[in-house]
Structures are given as structure tokens and as C-alpha cells.
């Protein structure tokens, strides 16, 4: 079934937004406007847009340190994300988190967690709270293939399945845990199979196809929301860039990267819309122009934003009276 034209264009627009935002972040990093660790999801945009697009506003999201795309797709304003990466007071974490720790409580975006596997227990608990309170919200928990080797993955899938909690476990399998290839870190590389062993529906999805991701996420979220317990999606994707800005990327074959780039989720989707007559040259130019305008406004706002006064350093270590 084909989605309506406006939905298809929105999927493209959102992916282009993430792609061009991160490409701009690379420039800003090289001019030292952004510092610290920065992990890009270029190549993985279909996962962010497809999964996050399937959620309702009342749903919760727990993400990883590679979360710019997830935050943007969740609706966290680009201005507050970029201001955070600039370390400004108007940043979504008031300059205390940076690229790896974007938070937006109003949108139930519970962060960027920089410990691999560290977000799974929190997501499990958010789902427990929703279930005990009788709310119909689901929690989307995003993590990478590296997390599947961590104890938290196994503890949390077991716990969520045992208690039938409303979690959609979304494994963004980009085939590398930093520099360690999937087959060098897992005895069983069929990750969906391993999740299924905990007694939940689990299946692999082409993570380079935004339509496939959106359809799978919709199916998963609907089932979980209906009370069938957790489920697991293995979103097979690839990062086109290095692990982080520090990574010389010595562990991947150039030809392998090139093969995956042939399946670029943005290019594929744009070409499909053009072929179907849902997008023309002008339409494409408008998307790019709109996105670039939003990015440049965010850059200007972040540049102009004040830094958090150093007198505020020790605020929020403990909750403040509201």
C-alpha cells in the first residue's frame, strides 16, 4: 500500500533535515563551534524517521549517544539541539549534556545515554510506570548492535517480556560496535533470533528503506499498545561516516562502505518519489532550501545565544523546588 503523497514527502523532508543538519555539524565541529564527542547517524536516517514517526506524543523515547536524528524526528527543536552542542544556556540540556545527552522532558525524550546498553533499564521502567498507571503509552528504546552483547540487553528483554511491558526495543544494527564488526562480536549474528528467545515478536527490517521501517514500526507500536507485551525490531542499517569525529575508520573496507552508500536511504526514497511522479525538481529544491534555511537559523541562534553563567554550575545536581 502506498502512503499519501504528503506523507511520502514528509518522510523525505525529515530525512533530508537530519542529513543536512549533521553535514553542517561536521563543518561546525571542524571550526570548533562544537566540541566533545560527536557521533553522526548519516546513512541511518530512515531508522530515525520511520521509528519516531510511528509514535504518539504521549509515548516515551530512550536513545543513545548517536541521537541527533532521533531527537530531530521526535520534534525536539533544531535550535535547542544545536544550542546544546554549542554549550549554550538555551540548549535543550542547558549546556550540561552536549551532543550525546539531548533531553526534552515535554516531548518525553529521555536522552541520549552514552553508556552502551544503559538506556534499556530506564526504558523498561518508563514502560512499567505507564503500565501501572493504566496509560496506553509505549516506550521506544533505541540502541545499537553493540548493546546486544551487554548484560542489560538480556536482563531487560527478559524483564519486559516477563512483565509484558509496553516497550518497542529498536536495535539499530549498523554492523559495527565502534570498530568491531558484528561477526567479530556476536556468536549468533541474527539479532532478532536472540530477542525472540525471550518470548517476544522480533523481526529484521531493511533499515535503509524508510517505508519499510515506518511500516514495521507502525505494526510494532500498534501491537505493543494493544497490550501484547514488548517487541523487538532489528533495523539493518549502516553508518556512512566514522564512529565519531575521532575515528580514523581503519577497520572497514572502502568497497563495503561504497556498497552501502549505493543504498543511501535519502537518495533511494527521493528517486522513488520522482519515479512515481510524487516529486519534481522544484519540489526537491524546495525541500533542500527549506531545510537549509532552518539550519542556518538554528546556527545563527546558537551563535547568538548566551552561555550558561558559571554561577549556575552546581544547579540541578539535586532537584530544585518548582
Amino acid at each position: 500500500m502506498t502512503a499519501p503523497v504528503d506523507v511520502r514527502r514528509t518522510l523525505l523532508h525529515e530525512m533530508v533535515r537530519i542529513r543536512r543538519f549533521e553535514e553542517r555539524c561536521v563543518e561546525l565541529y571542524s571550526t570548533e563551534r562544537i566540541r566533545g564527542f560527536m557521533h553522526l547517524c548519516i546513512g541511518e536516517e530512515a531508522v530515525a524517521v520511520g521509528v519516531l514517526g510511528a509514535l504518539a506524543p504521549e509515548d516515551a523515547v530512550v536513545s543513545t549517544y548517536r541521537e541527533h536524528g532521533h531527537a530531530l524526528a521526535r520534534g525536539v527543536p533544531m535550535t535547542s539541539i544545536l544550542a546544546e552542542m554549542f554549550g549554550r544556556a538555551s540548549g535543550c540540556s542547558r549546556g550540561r549534556g552536549g551532543s550525546m545527552h539531548l533531553f526534552d522532558a515535554a516531548r518525553r525524550f529521555y536522552g541520549g545515554n552514552a553508556i552502551v546498553g544503559g538506556g534499556l533499564p530506564v526504558a523498561t521502567g518508563l514502560a512499567l510506570a505507564d503500565a501501572l498507571a493504566g496509560r496506553s503509552a509505549v516506550t521506544a528504546c533505541l540502541f545499537g548492535d553493540g548493546a546486544v552483547a551487554e548484560g542489560e540487553f538480556h536482563e531487560c528483554l527478559n524483564l519486559a517480556a516477563l512483565w509484558r511491558l509496553p516497550v518497542v526495543f529498536c536495535c539499530e544494527n549498523n554492523r559495527y560496535a565502534m570498530g568491531t564488526a558484528l561477526e567479530r562480536e556476536h556468536a549468533q549474528t541474527d539479532l532478532a533470533l536472540r530477542a525472540a528467545a525471550y518470548g517476544m515478536p522480533a523481526w529484521p527490517v531493511d533499515g535503509m528503506d524508510v517505508q519499510a521501517v515506518a511500516a514495521a514500526a507502525e505494526r510494532a507500536v500498534t501491537g505493543v499498545r494493544a497490550g501484547s507485551g514488548p517487541c523487538f525490531l532489528e533495523l539493518r542499517t549502516y553508518r556512512f561516516r566514522a564512529h565519531s569525529m575521532y575515528d580514523p575508520d581503519r577497520y572497514r573496507d572502502r568497497a563495503e562502505v561504497a556498497r552501502w552508500k549505493d543504498r543511501d536511504p535519502v537518495d533511494r526514497w527521493r528517486d522513488l518519489l520522482v519515479a512515481d511522479g510524487d516529486l519534481d525538481e522544484d519540489g526537491w529544491a524546495r525541500i533542500v532550501a527549506d531545510v537549509d534555511e532552518e539550519i542556518e537559523q538554528a546556527v545563527a541562534a546558537a551563535e547568538a545565544a548566551p552561555v550558561e553563567p558559571v554561577e549556575e554550575l552546581t544547579r540541578f545536581v539535586y532537584a530544585e523546588p518548582s
Partner: peptide, 22 residues
């Protein structure tokens, strides 16, 4: 809970974020 300290302590954190008092 199962014997899974990281999971159930973290679940307590998540449940607290979600409005409960674990």
C-alpha cells in the same frame, strides 16, 4: 524481580521518571 540488578534498579529509575515512587 529476576536476578538482574541493573535491569530492576534501572527500571526503578525509569518508573520514577514516569511518575511513580519506586
Amino acid at each position: 524481580t529476576p536476578l538482574s540488578e541493573s535491569a530492576f534498579v534501572g527500571a526503578g529509575i525509569g518508573a520514577a521518571l514516569g511518575g511513580l515512587r519506586p
